[in-house]
Nucleic acid binder design. Sequence first.
DNA 1: CGTACTATTGAGCGCTCTCAAAACCAGTGG
DNA 2: CCACTGGTTTTGAGAGCGCTCAATAGTACG
Lengths: 250, 250
Amino acid sequence: MTAPKAISCEAIRVACESCSLRALCLPMGLALQDVDRLDTIVKRSRPLLGGDHLFREGERFRSLYVVKSGSVKSSTRDADGDTQVLGFHLPGEITGLDGIEKNAHTCSAQVLETSLICEIPYGRLEELSATIPSLQHQMYRLLSREIAYENELLLLLATRNADERLAAFLVNMSGRLRQRGLCATDFCLSMSRHDIANYLGLSAETVSRGFTRFQNEGLLKVDRKHVQLLNVTALEVLGAATPAPTIHRF
Amino acid sequence: MTAPKAISCEAIRVACESCSLRALCLPMGLALQDVDRLDTIVKRSRPLLGGDHLFREGERFRSLYVVKSGSVKSSTRDADGDTQVLGFHLPGEITGLDGIEKNAHTCSAQVLETSLICEIPYGRLEELSATIPSLQHQMYRLLSREIAYENELLLLLATRNADERLAAFLVNMSGRLRQRGLCATDFCLSMSRHDIANYLGLSAETVSRGFTRFQNEGLLKVDRKHVQLLNVTALEVLGAATPAPTIHRF
DNA sequence: CGTACTATTGAGCGCTCTCAAAACCAGTGG
DNA sequence: CCACTGGTTTTGAGAGCGCTCAATAGTACG
């Protein structure tokens, strides 16, 4: 029951040894030679530690960042100082796209655990994309994907109750892990309950209660950050579509 | 007190006679000759009537749409059939960006009132942007802007109460109108209370009560769709930043 | 073993939803 | 000019979900 964290993180690490930009871009239709050209502008840094910042809100925008292993949290802060978690980025995913327009970051990105991150200097990427139409095409798709994804999130926050949000979150994480070839039913959540709650527009207590209830209902097993999904179908139904407006129990 | 609708809509119409792609793109740093090239691929259609669809969820993605005059509502539908309003598009604004990735629209766009819409065939736009670096640059900015904007919306839905959401909505509309050179304190809301509520993740009743309370507090005057902001500062404070966690009144 | 932090659990309250009715408006036809 | 109709908006009353506050429990680390 112990060290599930180590197991899961190791799994991620192993799976992502080969997770370079190749893995990210090849399926999207880039020619191998173009990926190599892209590869030349990418900077690889030493592993970052949990709590390290990739960038902070307001900083000059210079680069996009691709998670190679580990995970990243992006968040913003409003006039009150209230912080809002905008998303979690898993291996293969990109962050920093919001900074392009104003040439300044509108949110902060913080590493949640020891992570490997690729930095892509945006200026050079844009130059390159002007000479490689397929790269430009993928860039447009990438940005559009982000928009569509946030639309889904808006739907979730605007219409779903606490259980549905939490279920949707778990199903979403599960799907993204599966997409990267990782175990979709047994994984570690690198973020705190508070972060999850904030992301879902709930209080930490409500998220905690949700986990407990799901466990009591046999939908999953949870031990701190380690989560084991036992009934993915039920979670999907709960998260994506409530079969009936009101469910009466007895 | 009557016919404010006509006044405001007329104002929009007049102000947007000149609101072509030139107005949209020139301030963004496109050379005049490039704007002209862009102009040649744009289709202009006869005025659309309230309720007409620009596109529907699931349809093949072909074009982006720029509002010349009038207004557009974009919304999505989930598995339950629940509909979620994702945004309102005013003159000069663009819609359809979410469809690029999957080559299919992930939301629907519906005209709220008689409107003039420019259609930009996406394939030709992408081709063009591959030959005009500055256009490519603006496209990236446009997409990034959409992402940053949705981030703000997520913050609103996740952390703000009903009054704050409504205030933020009004301030936002006001600012966007001002940006287009229209009156920022006296305008008509082309969308229904139900649409506003849905957009803000509230019930129509709560929105209605909000309008009434704001009016009683002297923040604005409201008569059906016609809104007159009397104390923009107070609304900004309420919508963007609550000065203190709790405000005690007596 | 003590400290600091995170997570869980409990109790009570308040905001917002739901349900319901009334008011209001626009359009139509008598 | 007025009654009728379908729609939206407003207003009211009650209930429930999720927040807040608070205490406890569990974990990591020195």
